[in-house]
Design a protein around this nucleic acid. Structure first.
Lengths: 172, 172
DNA sequence: ATGGATGCAAAGCGTTTGCATACAG
DNA sequence: CTGTATGCAAACGCTTTGCATCCAT
């Protein structure tokens, strides 16, 4: 699963507190602790800005690791749920029967193109949409808290007709 | 001025062919037949314009029926998949770990509010959004085939502060 | 001590599928 | 006859959970 972030609007915003710290605060409000395992998971998830599913994290953390904590599947699932509650991550889509998550903390609201051929997720941002939604919601007396917008179709790469490696060969 | 097309815009459009007939045509192109079971399922699904999940249809059709065919769970799942391929229905959301479908054939494109409290789905239609998406997609060289937009929040009913049945009682 | 956290394995649950049987053309 | 469709039950795959153990305060 790859994700392209072509717009500079989607680089991380400056956030005062790191995801780990943010999570610790959240846990504290629930009388819970930031354990070694939880911290490992958060660091792994926020190591780079990319979409992910639970199984990918399991794959990386649940087998004996040279350096670092090994974390069980159960704990990973439980922690991902907490991270979602904490607002650090959110579900963006479903692919291959798996929930796909992305960072929510420290990144601006955006939506996604999903290529029906290669399953690539491409982020895009558009102010107008949020604005319209806010307006439409209020017309319905609906108190909007967020939205999820997936645009399906074929990405430019997959749409390109199959071509030989070099254009000149086409002249045969 | 409202760009929202309220409920009555979402009544069925005049369609030349009934869902059953449309499905028969689709099946024909695949060398398949419209069986008694398949017809029963389509009729049940299109009996009224409402969202549904597989289990609801199973509940209605998979037990011995006084009048009408009984249909197995497997056939219902298989037929719902076909209906989706045929473009007669489409997935709109996921609720309680189940895919939620709606009629796609004969109804205009629209989006949904989803109440986080009562899970109610409210349809709304807005031309601007489609227009913007078309524009943004083309900027990305993305060939858009459709979209899925869920707006989360609290519906007007659930947002209303809890009040006693009759206002006069409030005066006690 | 004590309540929270982890890991393991088993259970859950919606959905899919293999297979034997039934059926339509 | 031959390919398709159905029903049943078992299989699947992701996710959740019961429970014994472990750990931090």
């Amino acid at each position: 699963m790859s994700s392209v972030v072509p717009q500079d609007a989607l680089v991380p915003q400056d956030v005062a507190v790191s995801p780990v710290e943010k999570f610790r605060e959240f846990l504290a409000t629930r009388g819970k602790r930031l354990t070694q395992e939880r911290e490992t998971i958060v660091r792994e998830i926020f190591a780079e800005h990319d979409h992910f599913d639970s199984d990918q994290i399991v794959a990386r953390l649940s087998k004996p690791r040279i350096n670092g904590t090994r974390v069980s599947r159960a704990t990973i699932y439980r922690t991902i749920s907490s991270l979602e509650e904490a607002g650090l991550i959110r579900k963006v889509a479903r692919a291959n029967d798996r929930e796909v998550y992305e960072h929510d903390y420290g990144y601006p609201q955006h939506d996604h193109f999903i290529c029906e051929k290669c399953s690539k997720l491409v982020e895009f941002r558009n102010e107008e949409i949020s604005a319209i939604l806010g307006r439409v919601a209020s017309e319905f007396g609906f108190r909007m808290s967020g939205h999820r917008l997936e645009v399906n179709g074929i990405c430019s790469e997959c749409a390109r007709p199959p071509e030989r490696r070099h254009r000149k060969l086409d002249m045969i």
